[in-house]
Amino acid sequence: MTEAIDRPDLAPLSLFDTSPGNYSLILTDHHFAQAADLFEAVGQEASGYSWDAVAHTAVRVHAPELGDRIGGFDPEAGMMCVYGKDEAALRELGSILSSAFHDRAKLSALIEATDPGDWD
């Protein structure tokens, strides 16, 4: 049974306990429009796939040590999802992404730093 973990500091991302010892960090399309112009400036559509690319960049640029602690990435057009067994790693990534979401300069820098091969 999936249960939300109350983490308002991660907003607009949500952290879920999906099953004992398994967690998911989610950003849904309800929030994509707020940064659509930043993605469009680099020729990308604001989607779960684009946010996935930004999440990969956030790990590479800000927290490379998380790479081995995150289970994987599973985006869809309307949702970015990062999952794994290490709740603290997902919280840390969520904090980085939440901070960028609320600071257009930080988000723009992450978008600009995204490797062309990461855009799906």
Rank of each mutant, 00 (worst) to 15 (best):
A63F: 00
L27K: 04
I70H: 05
F32M: 00
S24N: 11
D52E: 14
G48I: 00
N22W: 15
L13T: 05
M80R: 02
A46G: 03
L10T: 04
M80S: 01
V61E: 12
A55C: 11
L38K: 10
F32N: 12
S50A: 15
G21A: 11
G43T: 01
F16R: 08
I70M: 07
R60N: 12
C81D: 04
D29G: 07
T18V: 15
A53Q: 12
V61S: 10
D52Y: 02
V54P: 13
A77D: 02
D17H: 15
L15R: 04
A33P: 08
S14T: 04
A77T: 06
E40P: 04
S19L: 01
H30I: 07
L25P: 15
P64V: 09
L25C: 11
I26N: 14
E45W: 04
A53Y: 03
D52A: 14
T28S: 15
D17Y: 05
A33V: 10
H31D: 13
A55E: 05
L13G: 04
H31S: 14
G21H: 03
L13E: 02
H30C: 11
D37P: 08
T18Y: 08
V42F: 05
L15D: 07
A11V: 02
L13C: 07
P75G: 07
T57N: 12
Q34R: 14
A63Q: 02
V82A: 15
A46D: 06
H62A: 14
V82L: 04
V61Q: 12
